[in-house]
């Protein structure tokens, strides 16, 4: 990829905007932003399978939970370092995602939504189960510690643990977004969308729908699972009740609000689902849910294609003016 000067400038600006909060925000707000980026990553995962590949999942909270628990168990019970746990969390979520993708081949649309829904409902109960209690800590959950920044880093850049966590989340998420971007722009991304748009024509182009759909599920679960792993460390605690069915719906809302089948939209969706409920709460302490619902309805009424649709419209306006 050759970087034009304009694009290079855009990348620099993006980097600056991403790093500035390290020094601008105090601890609590930096933590919130950290969680928003994590939500964005989870939404990105959902977008791969539901947005780009058209397989509706109402159960991505389950992959988030599994990722969170794999990292927590390895860190709390086996003393692993945070970074060492990530590949394991990703691999296990990828395998579970693949396994869920298999029955998904036979179930279309709403049935698949129901199957994934039941997964989201089942996982928190499994996590509480007696048989797993020795690892998962049962209802009590597990406590863990944010990693401290290594000395070589603090000698150059004085960071506290919160700032270091934000930086880690930024790096891991940044890499995932970049890889997803590459995937979507290439041969496989086109095939995922083609399969969603017209399966018969996709097969006539030589696309192996079964392989694509299960692959999409695996990648999607992997990304959302990594987000879960990050969240466990950022929060320094996991418990079954952190991963209710509502979490899956939150990801879904983030995807729709940000823009179905949009990488950039996933980022916006993550910010939205984290900050807008807070805004709603500041407007009405008595009924924040009502306010949140109203903001959501107004937003989707004004921007039916989500945030990404707005960006797309502005871009087409700009390019058509140039021509």
């Amino acid at each position: 990829m050759s970087l034009s000067p304009a694009r290079f400038l855009l990348v620099l600006l993006g980097l600056a905007a991403a790093l500035a909060p390290l020094w601008v925000l105090e601890s609590f707000h930096l933590f919130q932003l950290t969680m928003a980026v994590i939500m964005a990553l989870a939404v990105l995962g959902l977008n791969i399978v539901t947005g780009y590949n058209g397989q509706i999942s109402l159960g991505h909270g389950a992959f988030f939970a599994i990722g969170a628990y794999v990292t927590s168990i390895l860190m709390a019970q086996a003393d692993w370092s945070f970074y060492a746990t990530l590949p394991f969390a990703a691999a296990i979520c990828g395998m579970v995602g693949y396994a869920v993708g298999l029955p998904a081949l036979r179930l279309g649309g709403l049935y698949l939504a129901l199957v994934t829904f039941s997964l989201a409902v089942a996982v928190p109960q499994l996590l509480k189960h007696k048989a797993l209690e020795a690892w998962t800590g049962g209802v009590q959950g597990l406590f863990l510690m944010k990693p401290d920044p290594p000395r070589w880093l603090t000698s150059v850049l004085p960071l506290n643990a919160d700032q270091y966590m934000y930086l880690n989340v930024l790096i891991v998420s940044g890499i995932c977004f970049l890889l997803a971007w590459n995937l979507i722009r290439g041969r496989i991304g086109r095939a995922l969308m083609a399969t969603r748009d017209h399966p018969t024509a996709a097969e006539a182009m030589g696309m192996d729908i079964a392989a694509l759909k299960t692959g999409a599920f695996a990648v999607s679960a992997m990304i959302t699972g990594i987000a879960g792993a990050l969240s466990a460390v950022a929060v320094e605690f996991v418990a079954p009740d952190s991963f209710t069915f509502l979490l899956s719906i939150t990801f879904f809302v983030g995807m729709v609000v940000g823009g179905v089948a949009s990488i950039l939209g996933s980022l916006f969706g993550g910010l939205f689902v984290l900050f807008v409920p807070n805004i709603a709460e500041s407007i009405s302490r008595a009924a924040p849910g009502v306010i949140y619902g109203m903001i959501l309805i107004i937003f989707l009424f004004v921007l039916p294609e989500g945030f990404a649709g707005l960006v797309r419209r502005i871009l087409t306006r700009l390019t058509s003016r140039r021509n």
Binding site: R190, D197, G206
Partner: peptide, 25 residues
Amino acid sequence: LALFKSMTVRENILAGAHSAGRAGF
């Protein structure tokens, strides 16, 4: 007509090149 309706003309044509490629996920 069985085009990929969310894609541009160029992307539709590129999708046709799927069978000529190997690169996976």
